[in-house]
């Protein structure tokens, strides 16, 4: 899975700025924490993030999410990763991630990528983008422009993604 292509959702506020510090209670609120089946988590994704409450209704399988800094800060809940997987979101790019969130995504084998110089003006929600995980590059296909470089994926992240999750890595 070296390239991922899809329609993008850019998590911006009403001024068009990337929303920083989107925490796990905005992504998957604590009132749903008892849910353990991945397929039941999708409808609640981002329903406590102002301006994005209807995200789950708009999102289609194959979409990609782009977010600001410290995305997923807060609690250790895996559901904050799994709710996007349940919706069929294929990757998430952020300026930076909360450390636990990043690990949870990596361990699930779900592609999370860091773009430190992310520019929200370079892509709009609805644009088609293509991510090249091996090359660490991505393009806005709708505008035909290159986007700022992605941070290199670590070996362990690559191995876990290739295996399809941490447990699959362990059992070879």
């Amino acid at each position: 899975m070296n390239t991922i292509k899809g329609r993008v959702w850019v998590l911006t506020d009403d001024q068009g700025a990337l929303i920083p510090n989107i925490d796990t209670d905005m992504i998957f609120h604590n009132r749903y924490l008892h849910i353990t089946k991945l397929e039941e988590m999708g409808p609640y994704a981002l329903d406590n993030l102002a301006g994005w409450e209807d995200f789950a209704k708009k999102c289609q399988p194959g979409d990609i999410v782009v977010a600001g800094g410290n995305f997923g800060c807060g609690s250790s809940r895996q559901q904050a990763v799994d709710c996007f997987r349940a919706l069929g979101v294929t990757a998430l790019v952020a300026e930076s991630f909360g450390a636990i969130y990043f690990r949870n995504a990596v361990n699930a084998g779900w592609p999370v990528l860091v773009c430190p110089a992310l520019d929200p003006a370079a892509l709009n929600s609805g644009d088609e983008i293509e991510l090249d995980l091996a090359g660490g590059t991505w393009r806005n296909l709708t505008r035909g422009t290159d986007l700022p470089a992605l941070k290199a994926v670590s070996n362990v992240q690559r191995e876990i993604m290739a295996a399809g999750g941490l447990f699959k890595l362990a059992t070879g």
């Binding site: 250790s76 809940r77 636990i100 690990r103 949870n104 361990n107 999750g165 941490l166 447990f167 362990a170």
Partner: peptide, 14 residues
């Protein structure tokens, strides 16, 4: 360190 379900399950087992 706080971790998610997959991480902690792996830690239990390994």
């Amino acid at each position: 360190q706080g971790m998610g379900d997959v991480d902690i399950a792996y830690a239990f087992a390994h």
